[in-house]
Amino acid sequence: MSRSYEDIPLTPISDTPSTVNMTGLWRVFRPVVDLDKCRKCTLCWKFCPDAAIELVDGKPNIDLRYCKGCGICANECPAECIIMVKEEAE
């Protein structure tokens, strides 16, 4: 929605965190984590291009609002505790 010329800065200065972009909607495959198999190596967190994985006690908490489903975490996980599952067609 366009904002009035009176309500915008002189030039486009962006200061709103990109968390407004729900990039999780792009996802075709969803990462599903078996936390019981997790060995807390943190590689999934380290290699996530979108900083969409948070570590909770060393284990991944994937923010599906932003995860684009690239699958790097699943590919890198040495414990093979992450699998990619096709998103259900709605």
Binding site: S2, Y5, I8, L10, T11, P12, S14, D15
Partner: peptide, 28 residues
């Protein structure tokens, strides 16, 4: 300056806008 970039203030100066917003900047 009325506008400037400052350390400690995360911002992008001059970013991409959609067609629904470009004209307002030129109008200004």
């Amino acid at each position: 300056p009325e506008i400037k970039l400052e350390i400690g203030k995360p911002m992008g100066f001059g970013s991409l806008v959609r067609p629904d917003q470009y004209m307002e900047f030129r109008y200004k």
